[in-house]
Amino acid sequence: MKLTVAEVEKVARLARLELTAEDKELFAGQMGAILGYVEKLKELNTDGIVPTSHAVPMENAFRPDVVRPSIGLEKALANAPEKSGTFFVVPKVIE
């Protein structure tokens, strides 16, 4: 099984990744090999099996709805690549 370069490009777009031409070729082969390997799951009949999304049986984890202090603006913005006052700055979204 091998993915086409066009398929790799489509997935990269969904994942917000830009790949070099070399990487596209490489990933097409490697992802194809891995997807070929996981095909073996099809050998198993899983009709009526409930999917597991969480290893420990737990109901919803509720807590009291109480206001607690948060880390505050200064700390929240400390790692911002670009900021202005109390805002994160990003390139213009709406023309």
């Binding site: 917000r16 929240a76 790692n79 911002a80 690549p81």
Partner: peptide, 19 residues
Amino acid sequence: DGVRFGHRAQAGNLLDMYT
């Protein structure tokens, strides 16, 4: 995604900045 923390690349629009 380069918005709140971590590496941010220079780009002209938001989508390019993420990517």
